[in-house]
Design a protein around this nucleic acid. Structure first.
Length: 429
RNA sequence: GUGGAUGUAGCUCAGUGGUAGAGCCCCGGAUUGUGGCUCCGGUGGUCGUGGGUUCGAUCCCCAUCAUCCACCCCA
């Protein structure tokens, strides 16, 4: 029916009023959490030079090859809508000298864009909350990030429903060496590889380990393990990280096949996953990317970060029925005037009440209608109290206070006493 | 990019080769200045879009678009 009319771009969703309270609930938990851990917010543009993403995420990744919204600026530059947040964050911190012998703990939040086929938990415009830290090379900061996310899950009631998966990719040298070993192994078993894997063979052989194809499972089970080919420093880093997690009581599962899609990762990688969302079960993922800053032209700088998918977490909260009842606090007061004169008075009275009662959620009826229909709207508004202003009230400087949610006689009060009356009533709500 | 399912009222959905229905929502009335429950009445649809078959298509066929799910990939 809307086919000839303009409608939202595929995979880009409107966030409707019924949903926004849940988003705000989630966002306020995140914001408070970040403050409590001493992380500062950074906001970077949604559009960057295409080259930034190509050089950081990796030229041959799916994201860069076929999923970016890329277009030419009027001056001929190739620009792209950001498909993830790390690249822009690195660019911004480098550009403003924030990495110059400094430690940074940063977070951000906002929309990302990838041109993929939409499905449950995957959209073309989606939202991430990301955290990036710079200048810290030990496993302590890796652990802090995991502890931070674990605390968020606990606060939201999700902790029992997510699993932490861990792996180490080693140094880039160790990873490259392992890659050669793996390629040699796959060459020996090339006839077992399926079509997808043969494609990955030349692009990203590590990803073959991630295949869900049961026919390849026996061969993959025998494949050389990344963890067996770690360099000494990476192995030590990983062991120190897992020791901290054990002391902190955070359970984890080492997943040797956890590779991560983006090229810039090294050493620690982790994912929080759930089985409650169908095939898009990764709800938060990240890792170390010690080489990226240098790769983008900066001084060598240790870096760790992660990103979580807001839509997926919202979906998870809904699926598990963990949506808080009071996410949308109802109105306290619905104020109505019975005719045009009284409505004018109601608008002015509403302002005076808001001056005096800043915590009071008050809506003034607009749009006229019969007295009866106005009362109906007061009821539908969810307000606890209705304040009725008619000719009779106006001539006596009074107002009628009607209880919409409790068995209680309505009362007339002098307007001069209204603030005090409401203060009492709202206090014992 | 590939595969499958689904498109009928604002929402959830029935339905039939002969120009469409329910529930909810919304509006009005039963109540003169009083909501919820009940009853009565009402608004609202070129049946996703385009084409084909037919005397006639919302229904059958084709195409297309959209949504959902899965693959791929990823948060």
């Amino acid at each position: 029916m809307l086919s000839k009319k303009i409608q939202a771009i595929r995979g880009m969703n409107d966030l409707l009023p019924g949903q926004s309270a849940l988003w705000q609930y989630f966002e306020s938990h995140v914001r408070t959490l970040m403050q409590r851990y001493g992380y500062d917010e950074i906001r970077t543009p949604i559009v960057e030079q295409t080259a930034l993403f190509a050089r950081s995420i990796g030229e041959v990744t799916d994201i860069v090859e076929k999923e970016m919204y890329t277009f030419e600026d009027r001056n001929g530059d190739s620009l792209s809508l950001r498909p993830e947040g790390t690249a822009g964050c690195v660019r911004a911190t480098m550009e403003h000298g924030l990495l110059h012998n400094q430690i940074q703990r940063l977070w951000y939040q906002g929309p990302m864009f990838r041109h993929e086929r939409p499905q449950k938990g995957r959209y073309r415009q989606f939202h991430q909350v990301g955290v990036e830290t710079y200048g810290l090379e030990g496993p302590d900061i890796d652990a802090e990030l995991i502890l931070l996310t674990a605390r968020l899950w606990k606060q939201l009631g999700l902790f029992e429903h997510v699993t932490l998966e861990l792996n180490s990719l080693g140094s880039s040298e160790a990873r490259a060496a392992y890659r050669d070993i793996l390629v040699a192994y796959f060459e020996q078993h090339y006839e077992v590889l399926d079509e997808d894997s043969r494609r990955r063979f030349s692009t990203n052989p590590l990803r073959i380990l991630d295949s869900k194809n049961p026919d390849m499972a026996p061969m993959l089970a025998e494949a050389p393990q990344l963890l067996d080919h770690l360099d000494e420093a990476s192995r030590d880093h990983f062991e120190r990280l897992t020791a901290i997690l054990e002391m902190a009581g955070i359970e984890y599962r080492i997943n040797p096949r956890l590779v991560r899609g983006l090229d810039y990762y090294s050493r620690t990688v982790f994912e929080w996953t759930t089985t409650a969302l169908g095939s898009q079960g990764t709800v938060c993922a990240g890792g170390r990317y010690d080489a990226l800053v240098e790769q983008l032209g900066g001084k060598p700088t240790s870096a760790v970060g992660f990103a979580m998918g807001v839509e997926r977490l919202i979906l998870l909260l809904e699926t598990l029925e963990l949506v808080p009842q009071d996410a949308t606090p109802p109105l306290d007061v619905y104020l109505l005037g019975m005719d045009e004169t009284a409505t004018r008075a109601a608008l002015l009275l509403g302002e005076r009440l808001r001056d005096r009662l800043p915590a009071c959620r008050l809506q003034v009826h607009c749009g006229g209608g019969s007295f009866k229909s106005q009362i109906k709207k007061a009821d539908k508004s969810g307000a606890r109290l209705a304040l009725l202003l008619g000719e009779d009230e106006l001539t006596h400087d009074q107002i009628t206070l009607k209880f919409l949610r409790e068995e209680r006689e309505q009362q007339r009060v002098a307007q001069s006493e209204l603030v005090e009356t409401l203060e009492h009533l709202l206090a014992d709500a």
